[in-house]
Design a protein around this nucleic acid. Structure first.
Lengths: 113, 113
DNA sequence: AAAGATACATAAGAATTAGATGTATTAAAA
DNA sequence: TTTTAATACATCTAATTCTTATGTATCTTT
């Protein structure tokens, strides 16, 4: 990761919920690779961070899981529950709002896509 | 604070360095109030977070201090050292870059000032 | 056959911040 | 005039979150 790791703190759940809102179902490893791809290697989600997060989301009822076997290998898919979809929208809104505030506070100019 | 507190993690040093780069010298309490004012109460820097951060910056040689007495009350001013000025610029650049990445990843549209 | 990629997961430790608490002075309000 | 709120410093415990290390196992490519 090119950034100070602290910057990512607090954004992981939002990232996961957003990806799941765009993809119906994804498995853990796929999420790490997708983030890597979408950020051109700038953000690397580590598995040690991701799996506890996914389990927490599941415990909170925001995602549901289904196991699939690829040969003998287990693959665990995660999907958004209705509550998860709502939570994702809210988290995204909150992050956007936070960024607006930071941009104003620090007088910086991000370039949008 | 209106935001999930985790979001602020990793940005506090950047905020402090940026404010000091705009103000020559500030004291702790002033910093908390300035952030509150500039963000219209959206971000509240707690003293429990700020003072350890200021002390860390001082230990790293990024800020220098001078004590002043207002009547009998102590006031401790913090100023950027040359190294602090450089570090502040770099932190700001990093945060901007990180935000660009997050904006692209999450496909969000912050509104700039 | 070995190495690298895929895929799950846990656990210890580091880092950062919130919240509580403490001290003390000064100004404003009751 | 008393007490409350604001100013101003600071520390400490606990909570949270992530990194790093480790572990297991399968599949694919060299």
């Amino acid at each position: 990761m090119t950034y100070s790791p602290e910057l990512l703190k607090g954004t992981l759940k939002t990232i996961v919920l957003k990806l799941l809102s765009d993809h119906k179902k994804m498995y853990g490893y796929e999420i790490t690779q997708k983030v890597k791809e979408l950020t051109r290697d700038k953000i690397q989600i580590t598995e040690g961070a991701l799996y506890p997060t996914l389990h927490a989301l599941e415990a909170d009822g925001l995602v549901t899981t289904e196991v699939e076997y690829i040969g003998k290998r287990v693959r665990k898919y995660y999907s958004l529950s209705p509550a998860g979809r709502t939570a994702g929208r809210e988290k995204l809104k909150e992050l956007t709002n936070f960024m607006d505030t930071m941009i104003a506070l620090l007088d910086i100019k991000p370039k949008m896509a």
